[in-house]
Design a protein around this nucleic acid. Structure first.
Lengths: 178, 178
DNA sequence: TACCCCATGTAATCAGTTACATGATTAT
DNA sequence: ATAATCATGTAACTGATTACATGGGGTA
């Protein structure tokens, strides 16, 4: 019998564990850094998934370290599950964009308040774009892993650029007419 | 005492109910059409929220219609809750993009399989862009509501364009080097 | 010695998805 | 007559968030 297939969050943890044993803590920080921009996960989620994964034999505890460190190793079953996941067609993305909701009901807001809200968002997106640009500049593009990282970074750059561009044109799009 | 603030899904239902009494069914179809592109919600979610909203006094049942229609009216409390929501700063968006995860672990895939996966996604995004373009062309830009609609549509157009553009450059970004 | 960071986790709740059950009404 | 659509909802589950509890170890 086939065990039911794993979810993307579990898969990403298994993905990281290919690089060596890690604790929940390690995985949280690694994940936030490497995939956090497009795949959020919280610490309690990670620990919960780890217990499940361990129960299901996808990982097993390595020799514990100081400070209650509990590193996990990926097992063959884990590698197989990961393989199955990465070979499968990823589903399409989901976006939940509260600002768009606000905008959809913008008739209930004054123009001034709306502008304020947009300006607020604009700032965080501008910061993110800066951050991506910075990382992009630092990236060494010559190794296999870095090319993957470059690919996701490039998405971030284009996405944030599109968002900013859109926001900058919003006043015009929303302008009052006679 | 202040009642706890509502979530964005509830807020959107209240937003629609400003336009007149609606049933769960009406709300599902309206929401799918008007905000579905950036705020997915399912039918069972809507019915569940409606019971909660009714319990909390944000809406109340209107006179039932044929076919077990159970329209709801927004109450003053509902209007107040909506107002509070729309005045508040929307949080920033979340994207969950499985393809980016796949890409982040692309070293585990053959180049051919990866290309296949990307091409697959490209198709659905191209379709969406076409759809947005079509809607955009149909849009009458002269009324207040339509301007909001135009603003969200413009986001969709820019987003999908950015995604396609990115996908088209992926081969180059991912190309093997000496 | 006090504080911060590392590191584990639990509890409770909320949000979202999938699948199913049920029946009325309208259109063909 | 029957198929499609309208319309309501429940059940079971999965996934994600928030808040809290606990303590070790390093560093100032």
């Amino acid at each position: 019998m086939n065990s039911r297939s794993i979810n993307a969050t579990v898969a990403s943890l298994l993905g990281f564990l290919h690089e060596g044993p890690m604790t929940g803590w390690d995985l949280v920080t690694t994940a936030q850094h490497r995939i956090g921009a497009f795949w959020a996960l919280t610490q309690s989620q990670v620990y919960r998934e780890l217990s499940g994964m361990s129960r299901d034999g996808l990982i097993e505890p390595d020799t514990p370290g100081p400070r209650d460190r509990k590193p996990y190793l990926i097992t063959d079953a884990g590698r197989a599950a990961f393989r199955e996941w990465i070979e499968s067609n990823p589903r399409s993305e989901q976006i939940r964009f509260p600002l768009l909701l606000t905008l959809a009901f913008a008739e209930h807001l004054t123009r001034a308040r709306l502008d304020e809200i947009i300006a607020d968002h604009r700032r965080t997106h501008a910061e993110r774009l800066e951050d991506y640009r910075h990382k992009h500049a630092l990236l060494d593009t010559d190794s296999r892993g870095d090319r993957s990282r470059l690919a996701t970074l490039e998405f971030g750059l284009r996405y944030e650029t599109a968002v900013l561009d859109w926001m900058d044109r919003l006043p015009e799009i929303l302008r009052d007419r006679p």
